[in-house]
Design a protein around this nucleic acid. Structure first.
Lengths: 214, 214
DNA sequence: TGTACATCAGTGAACGCGCGTTCACTGATGTAC
DNA sequence: TGTACATCAGTGAACGCGCGTTCACTGATGTAC
């Protein structure tokens, strides 16, 4: 009829991908409500996605498989962060503060992914935890490569640089966790946490500058 | 009969405390087997403790209450660590390495408590996570006090000292988590992780030495 | 010391419920001719 | 373009199971006299 909206034609593949995305998104939503991933049930996730429980098996063989998919999604989010910071081409002097501001915005824009990573990296079941830590190592190594290419502290050995980057990444994760735990709409408290984060990174960078390899 | 062992008389209070301890210990054991706390069931815990499910309610009103008891136990373990390090009265020069060695031994001797703290501090349900973070803050503040009393870096403002201690504590927790995840009986890998931990702390201390408050 | 009663940690059975998983099915999308 | 058949994402009902919680109970420990 004239008033009916023209529906975009949807291929079977597209439709399947949409349902899969709904399942992933449902798990993240439920976690955002305070449930650890390990406490989510298949039925909860499918109900929230608006499909019948059996549908789950068209996409994943078990809950762990869904978790691995979320690890991958989250890893992509993290790598995009690096790329975004990289392409701003910041001058070294103001790099730290600006990076932290971008990072804070990123954490807020991708709350669900950061929440997932922060909570599973130590709190998940062993295989999930391992997958998250692997992603974290990649991120850390990529950061080290970036800093090296920017000519940052050329005197540091690559082993030391990697160690420092691992420390930076751990600090980033802790900061993300703290920021995510902040009560909403408390800019004062948020500023304090961000300020502490900046100071922690500054301390680390000062340490790196003073470092002398044996 | 002559062969029967003389049983120590056990008061009702003592017996109750023993059962309570068995419940706490069961939860830790099950976590050591790879289950996150959030995935444990009341029935699992009571079965492992060798009591009937209903007994649980003589000691805790819900699983969360048991978790809070574990947070307290773990907090006491952490504070005992500080006391032990403090009373060795180390000279500042060798303090760092020696402290790390004590710490590693501590983590190994109290695997279950560290596993619990590491996994719940970001991965638990919100109230449990909050309780663990509170314990961590206390620990961090106590560490700052200790360092101040030892006359360590008297030039740092107390705000900066607290910030640095928080960073140290986060790094300790991450190190504990990494050490706990190591495959058993791999001294080579373990040495590498401990070495990285020492270097991270050295970097932080170098940064603190170079720090100038604004 | 002995007796009668009170306390209460732990028992065992029962309940209704949500869980993960299975299965034959339906009906829209895709393909062959 | 039209027709007949194949594919397969999503359905809905069913299953047996372990879950948290309740309840009246038992029997050893504790207390009063």
């Amino acid at each position: 009829m004239g008033l009916s909206v023209q529906e975009a034609p949807v291929s079977r593949g597209e439709q399947k991908q949409r349902t899969r995305a709904k399942l992933l998104h449902s798990a993240l939503s439920l976690m955002a409500a305070g449930k650890p991933f390990g406490a989510l049930s298949l039925r909860e996730i499918t109900a929230h996605a608006g499909v019948v429980p059996a549908t789950f098996y068209r996409h994943f063989s078990a809950l762990d498989e869904l978790a691995f998919a979320l690890v991958e999604e989250s890893g992509m989010t993290l790598r995009r962060l690096l790329r975004d910071v990289r392409k701003t081409g910041l001058p070294p002097t103001s790099m730290l503060l600006a990076s932290v501001k971008i990072y804070r915005q990123y954490v807020e824009d991708h709350r669900a992914h950061f929440l997932f990573v922060c909570s599973e990296r130590n709190g998940g079941s062993p295989p999930i935890r391992a997958a998250v830590k692997r992603e974290e190592q990649h991120f850390s190594a990529e950061l080290a490569l970036d800093l090296r290419q920017m000519g940052w502290m050329p005197g540091l050995s690559s082993g030391t640089l990697q160690m420092a980057c691992y420390l930076v990444v751990s600090t980033m994760m802790n900061a993300a966790s703290d920021i995510l735990d902040l009560p909403e709409k408390n800019p004062q408290l948020e500023r304090e946490f961000v300020e502490r984060f900046v100071r922690q990174l500054r301390l680390i960078f000062l340490g790196a500058k003073a470092w002398r390899d044996a």
